[in-house]
């Protein structure tokens, strides 16, 4: 009986999580400008209009650029730092890690305005580059967390075994270290990309005349007649994300099952 109570709770909680999210796709197909019951009939015109919205597509392009740059850079920085702290016993490791993870403890708005001030002080214009820098602050701690976990599960003996079997540092990295931490790298890329792609506040302060997608959406929320389109956009983002995660899972499982034979 108690087990069922917990199960019921879990299902109710799941409903709480899903209901608001399902509003997006439901009303994105609703043939009415007003987001209210009763539903007025099925339409795909919001999606069609979305495809014709060049400003939105431009913002999407900006977000993809920023997301990819942030994901690559923060994962690279995270790799180096995670390697440093798991491989070497360094004095001041704790202080360094504390400093790096500081952005987790600072509200985003403070990060945004402080970078805004700095750009002003050194006379640099607001740009997507500035957004990337801001997103790095938020993403590098995530990347490090993911990668440190991966490196910590990594048996140092394996690298020594590789050296012992005649491979130098570089080849050891490619033949042993890299394949073994690859899942961590992919997870870090995915996590940091999504984080950057979804980040609003820092981009809001720093993007200037080149809005990212969240900044663009923010601007649209003021116009009731554009809301169904925004919902359609949200539904697409949701669908693509789910497809990506499913793909990642599929690849991961396939990788496990595939027998690795041959030299």
């Amino acid at each position: 009986m108690r087990k069922h109570a917990l199960l019921l709770y879990a299902l109710a909680y799941l409903a709480f999580l899903y209901v608001p999210v399902l509003v997006l796709p439901i009303f994105s197909f609703n043939d009415s400008q007003f987001i209210a019951f009763p539903l007025a009939g099925f339409t795909t015109r919001w999606y069609a209009r979305l495809g014709a919205d060049t400003a939105m597509l431009h913002a999407l392009g900006n977000s993809l650029k920023v997301g990819m740059a942030t994901a690559l850079l923060s994962t690279l920085l995270g790799l180096l730092a995670a390697r440093a702290v798991t491989r070497y016993r360094l004095r001041g490791t704790h202080a360094a890690l504390g400093f790096i993870s500081l952005p987790l403890f600072i509200p985003d708005i403070v990060l945004g305005i402080s970078l805004l001030l700095m750009l002003g002080a050194i006379g640099l214009p607001l740009s997507l580059g500035a957004v990337v820098l801001g997103h790095l602050l938020v993403c590098v701690p995530f990347a490090i967390t993911v990668l440190v976990a991966r490196f910590e599960g990594f048996d140092r003996d394996l690298e020594e075994a590789s050296a012992d079997l005649g491979e130098d540092g570089w080849m050891t990295f490619w033949r042993v270290t890299f394949p073994l931490i690859l899942p961590g790298i992919l997870a870090s890329l995915l996590l940091t990309f999504i984080t950057s792609f979804d980040e609003f506040l820092v981009a809001y302060f720093l993007s200037g005349t080149e809005p990212t997608l969240p900044v663009y959406i923010w601007g649209q929320l003021r116009f009731p007649e554009r809301l169904p389109m925004v919902l359609a956009l949200g539904a697409i983002i949701l669908a693509v994300s789910v497809a990506l995660v499913a793909l990642a899972e599929y690849v991961r499982n396939a990788g496990v099952k595939k027998p690795m034979v041959g030299a």
Binding site: L77, A81, A84, L90, F99, L102, S114, M118, L133
Partner: peptide, 23 residues
């Protein structure tokens, strides 16, 4: 090890410490 940490610390110094100081 310090060399590996340096780029991350540099980015953080530039993007976090300096701006916060300015604030």
């Amino acid at each position: 090890g310090y060399w590996l940490l340096a780029p991350t610390l540099a980015v953080m110094a530039l993007g976090l410490a300096a701006p916060l100081g300015l604030v």
